[in-house]
């Protein structure tokens, strides 16, 4: 059974539910069951939060190092440099997300225009 197996109007929606919604929300539900057993201020919560935080850090690294779409053609050094400048601007200029985003975008856009 593939996306094109049936021509009925409802088939793509059933396909989305079975191949997309179910294998996504099932992990959320399992997360609720696990999270429900974790007490706040316990070591287990520190551990679960550490795993989740490292995982989101992995998502950040993925978006910077291996982006898809329009960013994929830019240089990896430009992206790392822009992210580093943005993060330094965040740490040094009063910890504002917007300052960091603007600093990173300035470096990135200048780099893209110069075809770096």
């Amino acid at each position: 059974m593939t996306w094109h197996s049936l021509t009925d109007w409802w088939w793509p929606y059933l396909f989305i539910l079975l191949a997309g919604w179910l294998p996504t929300d099932i992990w959320r539900y399992l997360g609720v069951l696990i999270g429900g057993r974790v007490r706040e201020d316990s070591d287990a919560l520190i551990a679960v939060r550490a795993v989740a935080t490292a995982l989101v850090a992995g998502v950040i690294a993925q978006l910077i190092l291996y982006p898809s779409g329009a960013l994929a053609e830019s240089s990896v050094f430009l992206r790392i440099g822009a992210a580093a400048v943005g993060f330094l601007a965040y740490l040094r200029l009063g910890r504002h997300v917007i300052v960091s985003v603007i600093a990173a975008e300035i470096v990135l856009i200048i780099g893209l225009f110069l075809n770096f």
């Binding site: 399992l30 997360g31 609720v32 999270g35 919560l45 679960v48 795993v51 989740a52 935080t53 989101v56």
Partner: peptide, 8 residues
């Protein structure tokens, strides 16, 4: 799963 478990 770990994200939701930490969030709840």
């Amino acid at each position: 799963m770990p994200m939701v478990a930490a969030f709840i």
